[in-house]
């Protein structure tokens, strides 16, 4: 750091701090006004949000339960975005991962017990990657917009899951597939809570992606393509190959999220498995400025906000839709102030 840069940096940090503080005040006021309008004391609501998000081991564990799939879908979006492609399809890729995991765990594939879990992980990754490979191929080979194709493939993935749930893999009465074999259950990290070993998978994936991006030749290529695709081509890189592999890998990461929901939470595939984790992943990825490690932090923060405001909803008896309004308002404010956006 040079002597000239130091004051500049300090000034930048100061303005960031002022902005951050201002943002918190504005957000709390805006959400408070919404709450007041519905006859709820905002201060009580904030206390309830904090208590429900951080007040107990159970609360913290639920923050992590929410964060686990979101970390993976956010990593998925990051990996694709780093080489200039939008992955709006993490939700569908998550479903494919879940379908593969249930398919292996439910259909009595003759696997020795200890092999089932690894097979489910690999199967979920491959299924998510294969689902993502289609839009990647259509984009790189034919120029079809990956935004549109992945959006449509989300609908197709849900249609496929719905068909399996009601048709060939039906459990009988519940709108879910039959259960997977117990050998396919992921262990809980904290007994009595739902935090499962897929959190470790997600954290390892975040660390792994950060490492690949910073320290490997592949990561260097991805970064170069993301920064300047023409320069990358000019330097003789096989740009399409790198982008294809990244996008397929992105699908695989989202597939792992589906694996975790099946093996760690439900032990089957219920109708409505994902409440939009793939879309939340997009928000987290951008708020984390495409940094895999920050994505973990942001996913946890969003989990806390979600669990906290859910608890507030139950404690104060306000409609659930109010919770999504407040959450969305906060994020829109963050976007509007561009506090956490990546600057290029």
């Amino acid at each position: 750091m040079t002597a000239v840069a130091a004051p500049k940096l300090a000034a930048a940090m100061r303005s960031q701090a002022v902005l951050g503080l201002g943002l918190v005040v504005i957000s709390l006021t805006a959400a408070g006004l919404v709450l007041l309008a519905t006859g709820v004391n905002p201060l009580r609501a904030y206390v309830e949000i904090l208590r429900s998000a951080f007040g107990s081991v159970d609360a913290l564990s639920e923050d992590l339960v929410y964060a686990t799939p979101v970390i993976l879908t956010a990593l998925s979006v990051i990996l694709a975005f780093r080489c200039g492609l939008w992955n709006i399809g993490a939700d569908g890729q998550l479903y494919l991962g879940a379908i593969a995991a249930v398919g292996l765990g439910f259909n009595h594939v003759d696997l020795p017990g200890p092999l089932l879990l690894p097979a489910m992980i690999v199967g979920a990754f491959v299924a998510g990657a294969a689902w993502a490979a289609i839009p990647a191929l259509l984009r790189l080979r034919f120029g079809a917009s990956e935004v549109i194709v992945t959006l449509m493939m989300n609908f197709l993935a849900v249609t496929l899951a719905t068909y399996l749930i009601g048709g060939p893999w039906a459990s009988g009465i519940t709108p879910a597939t039959g259960p997977i074999a117990p050998a396919g259950f992921l262990p809980s990290l904290v007994p009595g809570t739902r935090v499962n070993a897929n959190l470790l998978v997600a954290l390892a994936a975040a660390a792994g992606l950060a490492f690949v991006m910073k320290r490997t030749v592949f990561g260097y290529r991805v970064r170069t393509i993301g920064a300047n695709i023409h320069a990358a081509r000019f330097a003789g890189m096989n740009v399409d190959r790198v982008r294809f592999l990244s996008f397929a890998g992105a699908g695989g990461l989202a597939g792992l999220a589906g694996f975790g929901e099946v093996a760690g939470i439900y032990h089957d595939l219920p109708n409505g498995l994902s409440p939009g984790y793939g879309y939340t992943g997009i928000v987290v990825a951008l708020l984390a400025r495409l940094d895999p490690l920050w994505a973990v932090v942001v996913a946890f923060a969003l989990g806390a906000l979600n669990v906290g405001s859910g608890g507030m909803q139950r404690a104060l008896g306000v409609p659930v839709s109010l919770v999504s309004i407040i959450e969305a308002l906060l994020i829109l404010l963050i976007l509007g102030t561009r506090l956490m956006e990546r600057r290029t």
Partner: peptide, 8 residues
């Protein structure tokens, strides 16, 4: 995010 907001 706007979609989440508007649907809510």
């Amino acid at each position: 995010v706007f979609n989440i907001f508007a649907l809510g």
